[in-house]
Simulated assay, not measured.
Amino acid sequence: MTKNSARKKAARAYQAAHPETTFPEAMRAVARSADPTSAVEETSLLQPSQSGADPKARHKAIEALTALALSTREDGSAIDFADELAGILASVTANVGSVERLLIGRTGSWESDLVAQLVNGTVMEEDLPRRRTAPVRVLLDVDQYWYNSGLEDVYIEDVDAIEQLLNHHADDREREQAPVDELDTIAELDDDDRTAYIAAWTRHAQEAARELGVEAPITVVVAEDTRAYTDIDPLADRIEQLAHARTPHPVVPELGTLVGSMKHPPEALAARIRAAGRSYRDRAASA
C-alpha cells in the first residue's frame, strides 16, 4: 500500500460526493477533518477581556503584588519591591509587544507617562524579547505559501491533466491504472513537500527566536487562513518574517527569495518550476 493511500482513497470519495471539488481541495479537506491539532488548543491562563478590565484578573494581580511587596529576604529584610515591579512591567510590555501597545488605552495621561518612564528606564526596546514570558505564537499559512510560490498552479495543472486522462480511459481499467498511480505519486510528493517545508520553516522560526533572545516557548500554528488571527504581536511578526526569508522554496530552492514579490507572481514562478524540470509530473516520472 502506498503512503497515505487511505487518505487518498478518502479524498476521492470526498470528491465523488462533492463533484465541484478538485483533488487537491479534497485532499486538504480530508486532512483537516483527520488532524486533531488543527484547532487551537485551549489554555487555562487568564485571557484578555472583551468587556473592560476583568475583576478576576485585577484581583489576582493585586493579590500577587501584595504577596510580593510583603516578601522578605532570608535575613528578614524587605525585598526591593520597586525593582521587582519594574521588572514585572518590563515583562508585561514584552508580552504585549511595545510600550505603545501597553499604554494604547489612554496615551498622553500622566499615569501613562510615568509608566512609560519606568519601563523605558528598566529595559531598552531591543532587549524586550529577552523579557518575554508569554508563549510566542507564530503563524504559517501553508496554502497561501503554496499559492505564492507557484506550487499550487503547478500541482493543479498536473492533477487536471491526469484527471483528463482518467476520464479518457474511464472504460479501460488497464490503461486507467497508470494515471491513478501517477496521481497517487503526485499526492505523496505534495504531502512530503508540505511536511518538509513546515519542518524547515519551524526550525528557522525557532532559530530566529533564539537570535532575538527569546526564552519563552515558541508555538508554530499551521493555519488555513492567518487573516483569521488578529492578535497584534510585533515579536511574532518579526519571527515570521525571518522564517519566511530563510526557508528555501521546497522544490526549486533558488526561487525562495522571489516568493511574494510583486515582480514574480505565482504564474511566473510556476513557469520557472516547470522550466527547471521540477513539476510534479516530472518528479513523479523520475521517482
Rank of each mutant, 00 (worst) to 15 (best):
A57K: 10
R281Y: 07
T22E: 12
L151D: 05
P135C: 09
P48T: 08
M27V: 13
P266M: 10
A78V: 06
Q47I: 04
E41P: 05
A17I: 02
S112I: 01
S77D: 13
E152C: 12
R106V: 08
T66E: 11
D83A: 15
A57N: 01
P248F: 04
E188D: 15
D225L: 01
A199D: 14
L212K: 12
G108N: 10
A94F: 00
T185I: 07
A275L: 03
A90V: 05
H169L: 05
D171F: 01
E25T: 08
R7P: 02
Q50E: 12
D233N: 10
Q241I: 03
V252W: 00
L118H: 03
K56N: 09
A10L: 09
E211T: 14
R173A: 14
D83H: 13
D192F: 04
T37K: 08
E126R: 14
V96T: 02
A116G: 13
G105K: 07
Y197T: 03
E74G: 12
M1P: 04
R283K: 11
T43Y: 01
V220H: 02
P266S: 10
A116P: 01
P250G: 08
V154R: 04
G108D: 03
E224N: 09
Y155N: 03
Y145A: 06
E211M: 14
A268E: 11
A205C: 03
A64R: 06
V136W: 01
E42G: 15
A200S: 09
T133H: 09
L103H: 04
D225A: 11
P48S: 12
E174A: 14
N95K: 08
R246M: 13
E84T: 05
D190T: 08
A17S: 15
A17R: 12
D75E: 12
S77N: 13
A53V: 15
D127K: 11
T257N: 09
A134K: 03
P266Y: 03
T226N: 10
A61R: 09
V115N: 07
R137A: 07
R173K: 06
S49M: 00
K263V: 05
Q144W: 04
D141P: 09
S33Q: 11
R73Q: 13
A13D: 12
L68P: 06
D237M: 09
A17W: 00
D282Q: 01
R32C: 10
P179Y: 00
Y145C: 00
A16Q: 11
E211L: 13
K56C: 03
A29L: 02
T226V: 10
E211D: 15
L118S: 10
T226R: 12
A287Q: 06
R106T: 00
S112L: 05
R278L: 14
M27Y: 08
L118Q: 02
R130M: 06
L269A: 05
M1T: 07
E224Q: 09
L269R: 00
A223S: 15
G277R: 00
L118K: 12
S112G: 11
A61E: 13
P217Q: 12
P265V: 06
D127C: 07
A178R: 14
E254W: 03
E163K: 00
T93E: 07
A17E: 15
L255W: 08
E182I: 01
D35V: 11
V142R: 11
A285H: 05
R227T: 15
G97E: 01
W146S: 12
T185Y: 07
S261F: 00
A187S: 15
I79V: 15
G256M: 05
L45Y: 11
L140A: 06
A199Q: 13
T22V: 02
R7C: 07
L68N: 05
D172W: 11
V138G: 02
